[in-house]
Every structure is written in structure tokens, then in C-alpha cells.
Amino acid sequence: MFKEGFQSFEELDVWKKARDLKNEIFQLVKAFPAEEKYRLIDQIVRSSRSVNSQIAEGHGKRTNKDKIKYCTQARGSLSETLNHFIDAFDCSYITTEQLQYYRNRINQVEKILNGYIRYLKSLPPDIS
């Protein structure tokens, strides 16, 4: 899953899975009511995009401590995205089945992200 040496953030499995989820979410919210364009739709899109952005930004940081910090923020964005899906369900924009589907998808990405965080924590301490 994790290669030795330098690799682009685009090669990270977690970034790829988060990207797939983000793109799937973007397609789903197109069916939400127009009045939610600058409210719930914007929040869902922004939080789902934030997952990828945080992983990519952390990847570009020098220390593993910084990489972990940004991955932890990405995990927070996953939780925020799930909360927005619960809001969408409460507003009857998605069904129980859709909520469960996206809950599962978010959990899958979170598991991979947690594995990446464990990997980063297992590396030797950074030397300043």
C-alpha cells in the first residue's frame, strides 16, 4: 500500500479513494433542490473536497508530524461530510438507503486514512 521513497500524493490509495468519493458526492448533490446551492450543497462539496486537499497538503509537508496533523484534519472533514449527509437525510433530500451507502463509503475512506496515519506514526522520528 505504501511504497518506499518519494511518491506523489496522487499515488496514495487514500487520496484516490477520497477522490472517488468526492466525485460521487458531486454527482449526487446535483439532484438537491436549487435553494440548497449555497447552503447544504456548498457545504457537502467543500467538506468532501477538503479531504483530498488536506491529504495532498500534508503529503507536501516536511515532517511526518505535519503529515499526520493534516491527515487528522482530513479525518475531521470526513466526519463533517457525514454530518452533512445526515442533514440531507433530515431534509428528505436522500433516502435511508442513500445515507447508509454514503456512511459506508465514508467509513471505508476513514479506515484507509487511519491505516495511512498508523503507517506515518510507525516511521522513525523526524530529525530536525
Rank of each mutant, 00 (worst) to 15 (best):
S92R: 09
Y70M: 14
D90W: 01
Y70D: 05
Q98M: 15
A74C: 14
A74T: 06
Y70P: 01
N83T: 14
D90C: 08
S77I: 06
T72G: 09
Y93I: 03
F89I: 00
Y70E: 10
Y70R: 11
C91D: 08
T95K: 06
F85D: 01
Q98W: 06
C91H: 08
T96C: 04
T81Y: 03
C91S: 10
Q98E: 15
S77R: 04
T81E: 06
E80P: 04
D87P: 01
F89R: 04
S77Y: 02
Q73A: 10
Y70C: 11
S92L: 07
E80Q: 09
I86A: 07
Q98P: 05
R75W: 05
S79E: 14
T81R: 01
F85N: 00
D87L: 13
F89A: 02
Q73L: 15
A74R: 00
S79G: 11
T81S: 15
Y70K: 14
T72V: 12
E80M: 07
A88G: 03
Y70N: 10
L82E: 10
E97M: 05
S77W: 02
A74G: 11
Q98R: 10
T96A: 14
C71V: 11
L99C: 08
C71P: 04
T96V: 12
T95S: 15
C91L: 15
Q98T: 14
F85W: 04
T72Y: 04
C71S: 14
S92C: 11
Y93W: 09
Q98Y: 07
T95W: 08
F89Y: 14
N83V: 13
I86T: 11
T72Q: 10
L78M: 13
C71W: 04
C91W: 07
H84G: 01
K69A: 13
C91K: 15
E80L: 10
S92P: 00
F85G: 01
C71G: 08
A74H: 03
N83M: 14
H84N: 13
R75A: 14
T95C: 09
L99N: 02
L82K: 10
T96Y: 06
T72P: 02
Y93L: 07
D87S: 12
S92M: 05
F89L: 03
Q73M: 12
S79K: 10
E97T: 10
I86W: 09
H84D: 04
Y70V: 06
L99T: 03
T72W: 00
F89P: 01
I86F: 12
A88C: 07
S92E: 12
Q73C: 11
D90A: 11
Y70F: 15
Q98S: 15
Y93P: 00
N83Q: 12
I94C: 04
S92Y: 05
T81W: 01
Y93F: 15
T72A: 07
F85T: 00
E97Q: 12
T72L: 13
I86D: 08
D90Y: 05
T95G: 08
C71N: 14
L99Q: 06
N83F: 13
F89T: 02
K69L: 13
S79Q: 13
C71Y: 10
C91P: 00
C71E: 07
